[in-house]
Design a protein around this nucleic acid. Structure first.
Lengths: 139, 139
DNA sequence: ATATTTTCTCTAGTCACTAGAGCTTCAAGA
DNA sequence: TCTTGAAGCTCTAGTGACTAGAGAAAATAT
């Protein structure tokens, strides 16, 4: 049986976050001590590791909930799980594409400005005011 | 003089968002009608465009506030503005690097799974449970 | 027995909006 | 001028995924 502090230490998830995960139903404390402190079993530790990894990969709490539910119904096809992961992948790819566009514009903006002008002639401020200075499109 | 609806239409920023921007001090309605409706001048329209562009580039409200302040003190050097933009660029580059790592792992996960197995043998679920299956590092 | 650390619950704050209730005002046509 | 419908008003509360702090109780170490 692990205390919440032990769970936190081994997973690297902060204590209030673990309590939050319990609150939203991702995990359950097997039992409480006489003094009302949480005690977790090893399965909860494993699940918390699962949650951490999934969060690092950007899965939402909702998606993680769905994945946990799937893992508890072993007779169900994993195509749903694959679907969730694929949708997450698509999200990530979209974000990358957007950020690369932003990167090029920000590079242009910061390079254009010597840093020595004054507010009224600052290229950074001008660029942000005037979208037409953009080389490409960013959405 | 523009109504809030007109401002919304020309900038593409939703009406409640414009009110929110006023609330947090990014813009000010020049004046109100007898019936308490906002009326904006052309400078506010310009500023709203500035804000929109900056938000699209991922600048925080706080950073935008600072940039606006800078643009109102034209005797001040624009090196601060360049600094804000450069820090934003760094943020974006960090995010890109992280997301590319995530992308490769998610690709691995979704490719590994045929989608035909059952929960107990689903590669997606196994991958998320077991960090050691990762090919590279993701932080 | 005492001191320190850990844990508890609860409330409220973060960011950048978004949604809804219930009301008032504006603009255009009859 | 009246009426209708669109647009606007304020205010509160909700979103996601936590994070921070208060004040009290319990567990552990010395």
């Amino acid at each position: 049986m692990f205390s919440i502090g032990a769970m936190s230490k081994t997973t690297g998830i902060k204590i209030p976050t673990i309590r939050y995960y319990e609150q939203v139903g991702l995990i359950t404390a097997q039992h409480r001590t006489e003094g009302n402190q949480r005690r977790f079993g090893p399965e909860e530790l494993e699940r918390l590791t699962f949650i951490k990894h999934a969060r690092e990969l950007g899965f939402s709490i909702e998606a993680i909930s769905a994945l946990i539910e799937l893992s508890e119904k072993p007779d169900q096809s994993c195509s749903i799980a694959t679907g969730i992961a694929a949708s997450q992948l698509k999200d990530v790819q979209t974000k990358i594409a957007r950020l690369i566009k932003l990167e090029s514009e920000l590079t242009r903006i910061t390079n254009g400005c010597s840093g020595k002008g004054t507010g009224s002639q600052c290229y950074v401020l001008a660029s942000l005011s005037d979208h037409s200075l953009c080389t490409g499109e960013h959405n």
